[in-house]
Computed example of a mutant assay.
Amino acid sequence: MEGAVMKVVRYTACHAKEWDAFVEKAKNGTFLFLRGYMDYHSDRFVDHSLMLYDFKGKLAALLPANEVRNEGGAKVLHSHKGLTYGGFVLGRKCHTAEVGEMFRAVADYLCENGFRQWHYKQMPTVYHLLPAEEDSYWLWRMGARTEHCAVMTAVDLRNKERHTASRKKTYCNKLRREGYGVEIGAPLADFWQILTDNLRERFDAAPVHTFEEMTFLQQRFPENIICCTVKSPDGTVVGGTVLFITHRTVRTQYISASPEGKRTNALDFLMLALMEHFSEFPQYRYFEFGTSMAKDDTAINEGLVMQKEGFGGSCVACRSYVLEIQEPTNNQ
């Protein structure tokens, strides 16, 4: 790769087809990086996504990103703040040395365009189709500092010996005997009111997505965004979840229960049923529960982590880094 030069191009709408085609074939691409997902909230972010081309003019990587101004008014590039994770989206034949060229090329581009910082949110490894941790090495080489580390919990669906807390099994068996049931592919409206009521009452908050936005995204990505509910014997919905399904990972994007659902531990029943369901499909490796951070976003919510670990889950680190942009990096 010696002498190779990466060309950095800012994404515009005319690149949409090329962008999406690359995501579909990338070794760490998910539907969240498709423009049909990224652009649904384009009114909230100043998109500054980048496309990197190698010395032969072939698209080599994507960087989903947006720009902001810090308190001092300086330009800052963020891994797209409308997405759960970010970082470079890489081709399957990408070489480790190439990723170093990508980091240097983007840093030089940012310097030339007046940026002073680059906030890089790394993709958790459970979303990699192939090993794709080249960025970990080059972040270290580039002198990036760790800005944040969150704790995510994921269950390995292939681990048939995973430990499930006995009380969860007890709740599950009890509800099954009583006639509770799970609907996979339930109407979103059946669950959304439970979710919004819970968030309002417990945190005086609302879902990140509006009902209209989630309905729109579900219609656009029907294979990737699925609502699942648990119903009492009389057919009343007492809890549910919205799943974001990627190539090999199933994520509980939203999860909530009604008062009756909480009293009966209906969500334990739902989660165990869903893990059993997706275990039957060999393409799915992980069932992922999201992060479990306390209000200060530094300490972990130990009770929540233990609850998730009770399903047989274990920790996946979600790291974010900061690179200071001061001068061209050609000699680094």
Rank of each mutant, 00 (worst) to 15 (best):
F45H: 14
F45L: 15
F45N: 05
F45T: 10
F45R: 14
V46K: 14
V46A: 15
D47K: 07
H48L: 10
S49H: 04
S49P: 07
S49K: 09
L50Q: 04
M51H: 07
M51I: 09
M51F: 02
L52V: 10
L52F: 06
L52H: 00
L52E: 06
L52Q: 02
Y53I: 01
Y53G: 01
Y53L: 01
Y53A: 04
D54N: 15
D54T: 13
F55K: 09
K56R: 14
K56P: 00
A60D: 00
A60W: 03
A60P: 00
A60Q: 05
A60K: 09
A61K: 01
L63W: 10
L63S: 02
L63N: 04
P64H: 10
P64T: 06
P64V: 07
A65H: 01
A65S: 15
A65Q: 05
N66I: 06
E67N: 02
E67W: 08
N70E: 13
N70S: 02
N70D: 15
E71H: 12
E71W: 12
E71K: 15
G72M: 10
G72Y: 12
G73C: 10
G73R: 12
G73K: 11
A74G: 09
K75A: 15
K75E: 07
L77M: 12
L77W: 06
L77R: 09
H78K: 07
S79I: 03
S79F: 04
H80N: 11
H80L: 11
H80A: 13
H80S: 03
H80Q: 10
K81F: 01
K81Y: 02
G82N: 11
G82I: 01
Y85S: 11
Y85H: 15
Y85N: 05
G86W: 06
G87C: 09
G87N: 05
G87H: 04
G87A: 08
F88P: 03
L90Y: 04
G91Q: 06
G91F: 06
R92K: 14
R92Q: 13
K93Q: 08
C94T: 14
C94L: 04
